[in-house]
């Protein structure tokens, strides 16, 4: 296991250390002024855009996470409990779309949500709308829908794993002890699948917090997220130290949310028990 640790050290620790260091630098001409300064962090505190974007990203990711987990749980449950002989096929079917480039899937949604896209065309055809809906594309809706679709497999797989792991005799035990299907689900299946739900929440929430591709392509002017701000600092804005500071703040923000969530979860678990 040592080689893995070395790779991770080189790949994670060192870059992370440099990232943090750079966040205390400032931009100077073509290079950097390496005098440590808190200027970047002060700007993040002072200028409303950064806080607003962190909040917006949190909202977006939160909605995406809740939506995805809620929509995917029944699917994970179905595969775990009601698919017997072709389980592998179902898992492959669920994962297959995710073998496709993320970018392509984002573009695919552009086709569906577009002005002349499938949804607008169908609604027009049905006479439900007179004009194509503009709110579908280049909007926050588009970002949320696309992200939810893109991360579905990441929600299903861990939840499915933890549902599969539930010993069926526990459910039978609950039944024999007097629980009907609904009570049994709430008292055994759900609490026991919580690790999977938690994993799904983390697997979706964290990457979507930092996503910038989907908002850039589908979000329109109001759909941008914190990731876009960071990305811009390394692109056109060309202020790497500021980008580094933003990354550090984002990482801390995510860590804080994750910590709160973990604590909540632990309390919930112990209360359940």
């Amino acid at each position: 296991m040592a080689p893995a640790l070395v790779v991770l050290a080189i790949g994670i620790v060192v870059p992370a250390a440099i990232l943090v260091t750079m966040s205390f630098w400032s931009r100077k001409g073509l290079g950097f002024d390496m005098t440590p300064t808190l200027a970047n962090y002060r700007r993040i505190l002072d200028e409303p855009i950064f806080g607003a974007f962190l909040a917006r990203s949190f909202t977006f990711s939160g909605i995406v996470t809740v939506l995805t987990v809620l929509l995917c749980y029944p699917m994970a449950y179905y595969v775990a409990f009601h698919v017997n002989s072709r389980k592998m096929l179902w898992i492959v079917l669920i994962t297959l779309p995710f073998w496709m480039s993320y970018l392509l899937r984002v573009f695919a949604w552009k086709v569906i949500l577009g002005y002349e896209g499938v949804i607008n065309a169908s609604l027009l055809e049905l006479g439900l709308i007179a004009e194509p809906l503009q709110v579908l594309l280049y909007s926050q809706t588009a970002v949320i829908v696309t992200l939810a679709h893109a991360w579905a497999a990441f929600a299903i797989l861990p939840m499915n794993v933890s549902l599969e792991k539930i010993d069926r005799s526990l459910l039978e035990a609950a039944t024999v002890l007097g629980d009907g299907p609904a009570t049994r689900f709430l008292r055994v299946t759900l609490p026991m699948s919580m690790p999977g739900v938690l994993a799904a929440v983390f697997l979706i929430f964290i990457p979507t917090m930092g996503d910038y591709v989907t908002p850039a392509l589908l979000g329109g002017p109001d759909g941008a997220m914190i990731g876009n701000l960071i990305q811009l600092r390394f692109g056109p804005v060309n202020n790497w130290p500021m980008g580094a500071a933003l990354s550090v703040v984002l990482a801390l923000w995510i860590a804080a949310i994750a910590a709160v969530f973990l604590v909540l979860n632990r309390t919930a678990q112990s209360r359940l028990a």
Binding site: I49, A224, V237
Partner: peptide, 9 residues
């Protein structure tokens, strides 16, 4: 770029 990105946002 910084200003324009801010305005766009």
């Amino acid at each position: 770029a910084e200003l324009f990105e801010m305005i766009k946002a």
